[in-house]
Amino acid sequence: MAESIIKVLNVNKSYGTLKAVRNLNFNVLPSTCFGFLGPNGAGKTTMMKMIYGKALRDVTSDSQIKVFGLDPDKYELNIKFLSGVVPQEDNLDEELNVWQNLYIYGNFYGMHRNVICQRIDELLKFFELSSKKLSKIRELSGGMKRRLLIARALLHTPRLLILDEPTTGLDPQVRHLIWEKLRQLKKAGLTILLTTHYMEEAFQLCDTILIMDHGEKIIEGQPGTLLEKYIEAYVIEIQDETLGEIAMKMPIPDSIRPDCSHGNPLFYSESLNALKSLTSRLGSGGYYLRQSNLEDLFLKLTGRALNEQQ
């Protein structure tokens, strides 16, 4: 098995009395995409920051973080030199234009002027931003800013790309464009670490996901395997309140698992036919029969919805 790019062992992080990360363990293998999934405040960003030395983990004897075999508390510079970071909050330099934003960044990495210029052209083209080369930052749309942030992180051809919620707040077209680009980069050998609270994003990009809540790991594995193993294949969502009450009074076979801990009931089952026979008794509207997804898995594991704000 290939050597891990990131190795995290028993890592904790507290801010005063708040425990942001509790006893986290994981490994990231080269040329794979590893995703942190969880609601706001789950500790995803804090974990990312500890990887590139923007936050320091609690000092305990058994805790360890190794990135490229180096401890970020001591080798912050070496790790950042080999990694690209796309922050959750847009921190482009508003006082500089698109090209200058990238240029000063190349400068931080000690790159030669000609190389920087060449990389800027390549990356602007790759992210379909060539026409914005000399634009001011505030003239860019949210999607363009996000693409520019990713381009900035890739300028020095890093070996590890760290993305904190790369597509939050973007429209579906831009989201798909970014996913497509990230897949291409992974194929070319880049290791990607990302956080997201979009189930679909994790499913589209990640080889491994780690679901966390309240700073703790809940489960880790391949997205497909997790779904197969921990949640039924199909689900009916009842959207109408009175219909929900009717549904709960109906006799429900053992092959269906009802869940009404969150307002309107949900009915899970491995058997599509069992659910179909249930819906036939419910009439024609007010419910939605679909395949279950990571969101349902999260709900099952934590007992609460993923979009709840902390």
Partner: peptide, 14 residues
């Protein structure tokens, strides 16, 4: 406000 420092600190700058 501008978070310029956060941007710089993601590069190999301490």
């Amino acid at each position: 406000y501008d978070k310029v420092y956060d941007g710089i600190l993601a590069a190999p700058i301490t």
